[in-house]
Nucleic acid binder design. Sequence first.
DNA 1: CAAAAATGTTTGGCTGGACAAACAATTTTA
DNA 2: TAAAATTGTTTGTCCAGCCAAACATTTTTG
Lengths: 258, 258
Amino acid sequence: MPDQTALSPSQEDYLETIFLLVREKSVARVKDIATRMGVHVSSVTGALKGLSAKGLINYDPYSYVTLTDDGELLGKGLARKHEVLRDFLIKVLSVEPETAERNACHMEHAVEPDVMERLVHFVEFVDRCPRAGFEWRKDIEDFCSRGGEPEDCAECVAACLKSTRSAARKAVAGDGPKRLWELEAGDKARVTRVKTGGPAMDRLSEGGVERGATLEVESVAPTESFMMIKARGYHLRVPRHAAERIRVNVERTRDDNR
Amino acid sequence: MPDQTALSPSQEDYLETIFLLVREKSVARVKDIATRMGVHVSSVTGALKGLSAKGLINYDPYSYVTLTDDGELLGKGLARKHEVLRDFLIKVLSVEPETAERNACHMEHAVEPDVMERLVHFVEFVDRCPRAGFEWRKDIEDFCSRGGEPEDCAECVAACLKSTRSAARKAVAGDGPKRLWELEAGDKARVTRVKTGGPAMDRLSEGGVERGATLEVESVAPTESFMMIKARGYHLRVPRHAAERIRVNVERTRDDNR
DNA sequence: CAAAAATGTTTGGCTGGACAAACAATTTTA
DNA sequence: TAAAATTGTTTGTCCAGCCAAACATTTTTG
Ligand SMILES: [Mn+2]
Ligand SMILES: [Mn+2]
Ligand SMILES: [Mn+2]
Ligand SMILES: [Mn+2]
């Protein structure tokens, strides 16, 4: 049976890197892992043995590395953690992208799942609440970079009133429920109804796509056979047939985001 | 000359612990450090040598440990980092105190000063912005723990309107500028004027106590010779004579915070 | 004050994670 | 296909941190 002990921060980074490489090139080479992590190849070989012993990767000397199901799952979680943290730093705290990247990759080893979920919800909140949105983000940005005069907050009230207007605009944007498949890249929506059934739908439900959830369409495949969406910080692939069984209310279209 | 390399996470924890012990008991004993950190005493001896080599602590075998000026400064920064992060987790994300504590003590080694300052401002923002405040925190808490129905945000607008009232109440609370020394524990205020001069005032300016800064009175010494305040996440000791030279507008009194 | 208890240090041993260099396999090139 | 270049592995070495046990010092107690 595989070694059950928790991953070390170093191991987490290796697994995350492998996950990303596999996602990109469907296979990970020792050299690539070493390059990405800025580490000697011999160190990689060592790390691979450890991850293999934990049943997270398929590893045979001199051949390519792939992920086991367990590894896939764990790796996905790690990549998500990284991304959610970076999003938080950039979107909410207006930190420089490179700094955000660096800090996120250190923080990711320090936040427990519990805290992660809160953070996901919080970033979502900032993204969605009518009182929040872009105007609000600007407020914080100003507040942060200029040292924070609270007189600025008088403007908050104005922005807040505007938000009722934006809510109205939203109602227009919505224009009644649609099928997820009808949306375009950049659209944000809320799920109103899901026709369950089938493994694809089950996977989506597990990924948090259910009544009330918010999601964003990231891209539609050129072949029009599936779309990529982001929900609860996860990137999910939704096959066309599934996207046609999910009803949503559009809350913000690509153009609303400037 | 002292070893100039950066502290390791472990060393940061040792220094932070020593800082806190010195603050409490004005001196740190090996045993106490070991107990607090859940570590064997022999490990502490080793760590002390490292910190001593970096010129951060005064260390003679078999005698008490104290901080050098450099160590004091660094230690204070670390304790602050820890605290700001914990505050963020608890106040903004509504994470359980123990979880917050644990995660903060891991995250603190991962955030750069830049990000820290953003976070301080952000927590301050959440604490101060009339659009924010307690009502808002409740919103997020609900949003986070209940999975986030955005319909809840209709209430946001109501809360927002209330915030103009709270702004009005604020004006009353203010009642014109006062001397910092006249405030009580729990009062929050904004600095309007500072009579500079003297080392105590200089230290406070460096600590961020200047026109426009917000601060909170934490306690007034029983002897009435100084008060402790919190500004920009720092805990500062303000001697009476200094507190009499700082003019402030009260923005929220202890009672306003329930 | 001497014995006992508590506290602190040294030494040796362990692990995880990194590197360099020598070696082995695989892929590319001529 | 043989040589050269690239990629991957093994081995030996180092360093940070931790512990346990033996030893040293200081403090408490009878
Ligand atoms: Mn990382
Ligand atoms: Mn990462
Ligand atoms: Mn820590
Ligand atoms: Mn800490």
